[in-house]
Design a protein around this nucleic acid. Structure first.
Length: 257
DNA sequence: ATGGTGGAGATTCCA
């Protein structure tokens, strides 16, 4: 049995106590983190080592930042695929055992039609081309993280209110679909779910209490990994704590090593 | 069109 998860922590420094508690409780084999907002020199290596986790990370001050935590040591870490000439720390790939892990913090995109929106769509186009190569190199591939895209209307609490808005616009959804078209499966949709599986709720307007959520964090799996996937779910427990991240973790379980 | 909240770090940007 193997457990793999993703969580946008929105500041690793602030969320470290919650993270350590969750690691002890859930004991994932691999956890991808986004929006760590911490420089590499300040990454809390000692605290995570004490909790039984190795880490590879690519961070910067104040914004962005990604990390992969794992029980066994990761290798072949990569942060800047060919064609990405970008100071924003949003990409981290690493090999954990027989598994290739690609952790993504997809740009938010600001508003539809803005410069940030164009950056997001161009970024997703380049990611697709790179993932096609990663998939050829690594049959056992998981691509997970904060995609900042709600793939379908059922992933949005108010689909008509969000129609063609950021996170939901047709070009963004097409870009997400293009990733699935590489042969990747949206793990949570491989299983029956009791509800809508939101992963993000705005801090404002009591969004979580009213369940005004969107499903924008995802775990995508290659065909051979899909064959061993047993379950996938959202863990909403952390979102209800004091001083929460605005995102909840997504977790997937796999049958064989 | 705006504001509502939160994090970081500097008196504002980003989500």
């Amino acid at each position: 049995m193997k457990k793999i998860a993703t969580w946008n922590v929105n500041s690793l420094r602030v969320r470290l106590p919650q993270l350590l508690e969750w690691l002890g409780r859930e004991q994932p084999d691999v956890l991808a983190l986004q929006e760590t907002k911490i420089e590499d020199a300040k990454f809390p290596v000692a605290e995570l080592t004490a909790a039984g986790y190795r880490a590879v990370f690519s961070g910067q001050k104040a914004y962005n930042g990604v990390a992969i935590l794992s029980r066994i040591e990761a290798d072949n870490a990569l942060t800047d695929p060919v064609g990405f000439d970008d100071p924003q720390r949003r990409i981290l790939a690493a090999t954990v055992g027989n598994l290739r892990v690609v952790n993504l913090y997809v740009p938010n995109g600001g508003e539809v039609g803005s410069d940030k929106y164009a950056y997001k769509l161009n970024w997703l186009l380049k990611i697709r081309d790179w993932l096609r190569e990663e998939l050829e190199r690594h049959p056992q591939l998981v691509v997970l993280g904060d995609f900042n895209i709600a793939p379908e209307d059922r992933d949005v609490y108010d689909p008509d209110g969000w129609r063609e808005k950021i996170l939901c616009s047709t070009p963004e959804r097409m870009a997400f679909r293009a990733l699935l078209d590489l042969g990747l499966a949206d793990a949570i949709r491989c299983f029956d779910q009791p509800g809508p599986c939101y992963t993000w709720w705005d801090y404002r307007m009591n969004g979580f209490r009213r369940n005004l959520g969107l499903r924008i964090d995802h775990i995508l799996v290659s065909p051979s990994l899909r064959a061993t996937c047993l379950a996938c779910w959202v863990d909403v427990t952390l979102r209800g704590l004091e001083r929460p991240s605005d995102h909840a973790p997504v977790v997937a379980e796999f049958g064989c090593d």
